[in-house]
Design a protein around this nucleic acid. Structure first.
Lengths: 235, 235
DNA sequence: GTATACATTAATGCATACAATCTTCGAGAT
DNA sequence: ATCTCGAAGATTGTATGCATTAATGTATAC
């Protein structure tokens, strides 16, 4: 055997991959909302594949906590409880602190440049107020984790950040992301200066702000969990 | 065709679950070694299910990093590289520190008792030197994570601990786990005393010991990655 | 008028058939 | 003998059909 060129180590064929990617993007951009049903044949029709492929994609989304999968009842966009939301935020903070700790040691000028470019993208998307703004805000953190060089860490950050989109959709009111972008810039600045203390503080503050925006406004009636609503109207 | 042991009546979803659980245990107990191939037909025969079910189980194992899945070539037990191994250990330490931090706050006497019982199990399994000893050593950490009450954290700890079994199988020599058990006991003692500093130190020391046993003995020719061997004979 | 039982519909659970792809092995040429 | 090409076998990729289950609609009994 010659030099091993690592091929894409993802799951089977690129077909379930594209269904997975499409659904994931729809969820993260909040085109599909928590509680929405995901019938296999409808998805299969839209993507031009059979239910077999769709099921593989759904299984993966389920493994990542983005959808619920009830036996004989099918898939729905996950509705994290407040308790789960707190678990996710706590774990996310734990993981992202480690990301920052690694980046302080090894971040390069080229990395900084990519981060700056990303924030520029965020600002542009924010100006047009497109659905991509939400996604890009999360992808900033995913990019940070990827640049940390620890693939395992990066995968977990990817998951918790994605699930945070669900939490925001459920519990938060429509938010202007301007402050998020400023905070992202602060993190970059601290990384550039190799100032670990400030970088971690900035990340902590940023995540705390996101958490508060999500969980403290949970009085908002935005979520679609009918049961908890009906409970209040049943008596 | 072999006789399907599974009863055909019970609502499925449990079926791929049992295939997943069986394969996972075989991997963690090192009955299946890194690099081994996992043909869908053979697995399906042994478990008395069709390839459809097997593929679901394999997809889940892949999502958890226990098997590699190459397109058109099937599944093999994952062979983490040294780099991946380091990533896993680093992430594991990050996560388990958080587990300890939580437990210091909320661990109950009943929790302590369950942990003590588990260590007793470990000692017994170690005496008989059965394949369960390896698994139980890991499950101590999974139990800790479960008791922490953060389900997300628990899931990630479960994954990294499981993957550590792979790393040990690849790079470590057969180890006596006695010291591990002693270290587990130290962690319990520190938790009982609500001594956070000591508990975290004990966990750090324990994981560092495991890491060293795994990675520093990587000169051992035990692993099956032909390339790294050839590299030393090619020049 | 209400509630229970039954029929209908729709969706998922699963196995299997077939297609696409990789692997192996042998024949023929150099 | 070695290399190349190719055909046969083996394994995975995908679609589809049938069985099973949940959800819904309807009728009948009280």
């Amino acid at each position: 055997m010659n030099v091993p060129i690592r091929k894409p180590k993802t799951t089977s064929g690129t077909r379930s991959e594209s269904v997975y990617a499409g659904l994931r993007r729809a969820i993260i951009e909040q085109a599909l909302m928590p509680g929405d049903k995901l019938p296999e044949d409808i998805i299969g029709d839209r993507f031009g594949v059979s239910r077999t492929i769709v099921r593989a994609a759904l299984a993966r989304l389920h493994a990542e906590g983005l959808i619920d999968l009830q036996p004989n009842k099918g898939a729905t966009i996950a509705q994290p409880s407040l308790s789960e939301a707190q678990d996710i935020f706590e774990t996310r903070m734990c993981l992202e602190r480690q990301v920052i700790a690694r980046l302080i040691e090894k971040v390069t000028d080229r990395d900084i440049e990519r981060l700056e470019q990303h924030v520029a993208l965020e600002m542009k998307a924010n100006a047009h107020d497109g659905p991509a703004a939400i996604r890009l805000a999360g992808e900033f953190h995913i990019l940070l984790a990827a640049l940390s060089g620890n693939g395992v860490l990066a995968r977990y950050v990817n998951e918790v950040v994605s699930r945070c989109s669900l939490i925001l959709a459920l519990y938060s009111r429509p938010h202007s992301s301007d402050c998020s972008i400023n905070e992202h810039q602060q993190i970059i600045d601290a990384l550039r200066a190799r100032d670990g203390r400030t970088a971690i503080d900035a990340m902590d503050h940023h995540l705390q702000a996101v958490t508060d925006r999500a969980l403290l406004s949970s009085n908002s009636e935005k979520h679609r969990d009918i049961r908890s609503i009906l409970d209040r109207y049943a008596s």
